[in-house]
Amino acid sequence: MWGHQWFHEFQMMAAAGYAVVFTNYRGSTGYGYAHQHAVHADYGGVDFRDNMAVLDHVLQQHDWLDSSRLYITGGSHGGFLTNWITTQTDRFKAAVTQRSVSNWLSEAGTQQYPPNSMRREFAGTIWQNFELYWNRSPLKYANQVSTPTLIIHSTEDHITPIGQGEEWFYALKANDVPVEMVVFKGEGHSLSRNGTPINLVERLKRILAWFERYAD
């Protein structure tokens, strides 16, 4: 769904020398209701497998890509996936997680949507389906992460409140993972799309700088 218009962020990364791989994984839009909602009660399942399958396919198709120099970033659902993927594999040299979810239990009690929305996503409340909420929380597996991680979050994000980033920062710090957190004061969940111009630019600079720090 990114392909219908010029997207400056991918172009910026390509201009810096990166090959950019992205896909309409299950849980995203573009292929109908069933495709978008296949992730319900399966966060970290079909969405994770689709992204890793696409990466493997692209690496197999293009021998000029360097599989030893992989980087990962994403925001919102993509931020959750960035966290989750780094709990499942050490293939990536560095990660930038943006407006992410690290703990579905605390997300359920602090995000702006009514309880009904989380009930739909996880086939019940945290009291009815506690194990699913916790088992699909990256926080549970933070001791398995080794990927250097930059966390980007905003103070006025009410969809994935800043506590999600703070919990992830604490968890990685406690497990001796190289981690930094950048907080954008006054910005919300849509920083990457309609933040103030100076913050839009700063966010992009921070992402590239983090990858470049771990380029060798």
Results as ranks from 00 to 15, higher is better:
N24Q: 08
Y25I: 04
Y25H: 09
Y25R: 02
R26M: 02
G27E: 00
G27R: 02
S28H: 13
S28Q: 03
S28I: 01
S28N: 06
T29S: 10
T29K: 04
T29N: 11
G30W: 01
G30D: 00
G30Q: 08
Y31R: 07
Y31F: 14
G32L: 12
Y33N: 00
Y33Q: 07
A34Y: 05
H35S: 14
Q36H: 13
Q36A: 11
Q36N: 14
H37I: 00
A38D: 13
A38H: 03
A38S: 13
A38Y: 08
H40E: 13
H40G: 09
A41V: 05
A41R: 10
A41Y: 11
D42P: 06
D42W: 09
Y43I: 00
Y43F: 12
G44W: 02
G44A: 04
G45Y: 01
V46T: 11
V46P: 13
V46L: 10
V46D: 14
F48E: 07
D50W: 03
D50C: 05
D50H: 02
N51R: 03
N51Q: 13
M52K: 14
A53V: 01
A53P: 07
A53D: 14
A53N: 12
V54G: 13
L55C: 11
L55W: 01
D56L: 03
D56W: 07
D56E: 15
H57F: 10
H57A: 13
V58M: 11
V58S: 12
Q60T: 04
Q61S: 08
Q61L: 10
H62Q: 08
H62Y: 15
H62M: 08
H62K: 03
D63G: 06
D63H: 14
